[in-house]
């Protein structure tokens, strides 16, 4: 992709409407082009801010002004007073025009709230979808810093979905960076209502090569009071190859779960 195509594709990228192939080409270019990366960053921030933007409300003076205008119009067009009726063709035109404008204003301001509400709802869904996409995309980046950003993006989602859940579990098990794994364990705490996630967190402990992440996993699981973690913790506590701090923590977990 050229820089020009990046600029054209920006909106589609932010809205998450890009096909997988196009997105790969898009990110491929952005990875290597500092100018485009900066631009994408800027637009992403803007897009994020849009969500926090308060909906502009009509000024409080608008309604009395409109009523006054309507009142004046009503008085001027009372049928009992035919003399008040416009006598020249251009006046009819003016009247028609003011009616038209009045109707537009009324329609605009009276109909606005319900339309705005559905608009907000659909925007929210779109933003939620965008957050999911940003999370998933960032979690696949080369740089640990970007993947860490991906993990923290998942915290912004109101209702994280299974795609994000899986990406975070993959990060816990496979991410080459210890700090990204630690953050992923932390981010998964809000998914622990799902028994599959609890199970996956327990299963992650023995395959984990970092003692610090193992401890974080024990700390995430034990407060859930799930005694099924007991056998794994017992194995870990007895494993002579495990790090001493990890063995201690496993023993602590067993006591907490009341299965020591």
């Amino acid at each position: 992709m050229t820089c020009e195509q990046i600029r054209i594709g920006m909106a589609e990228y932010l809205a998450g409407r890009m096909s997988a192939g196009d997105r790969a080409a898009f990110l491929g270019h952005v990875d290597h082009c500092e100018a485009c990366a900066a631009e994408v960053e800027e637009f992403t921030a803007l897009w994020r801010d849009l969500d926090d933007l308060p909906l502009p409300m009509p000024s409080t003076r608008m309604l009395p002004r409109f009523r006054a205008m309507l009142h004046a119009y009503e008085r001027s067009s009372r049928p009992s007073n035919l003399a008040m009726m416009p006598s020249r063709p251009w006046m009819w035109g003016a009247l028609a025009a003011s009616l038209f404008v009045g109707g537009l204003l009324a329609g605009h301001y009276l109909g606005r709230n319900s339309a705005a509400n559905t608009e907000i709802a659909s925007l929210k869904t779109e933003v939620e979808g965008m957050r999911q996409m940003v999370t998933l995309t960032l979690l696949q980046q080369q740089s640990a810093g970007e993947r860490l950003r991906g993990v923290t993006w998942s915290n912004r989602m109101e209702r994280p979905d299974s795609a994000v859940e899986n990406a975070l579990l993959t990060a816990v098990n496979r991410d080459p960076n210890v700090n990204v794994r630690l953050s992923a364990v932390d981010a998964l705490q809000k998914f622990t209502a799902n028994p599959a996630v609890r199970r996956a967190l327990v299963d992650a402990i023995p395959v984990q090569d970092s003692p610090l992440v193992q401890i974080a996993l024990i700390d995430a699981i034990v407060p859930l009071g799930d005694a099924s973690a007991g056998s794994m913790l017992r194995q870990l506590a007895a494993d002579p190859h495990a790090n001493e701090a990890v063995r201690k923590r496993a023993n602590w977990g067993l006591r907490k779960l009341g299965v020591a």
């Binding site: 810093g145 950003r149 700090n179 401890i215 701090a245």
Partner: peptide
Amino acid sequence: KPMSFSTL
């Protein structure tokens, strides 16, 4: 950007 510092 987020940052992270860790040690056992």
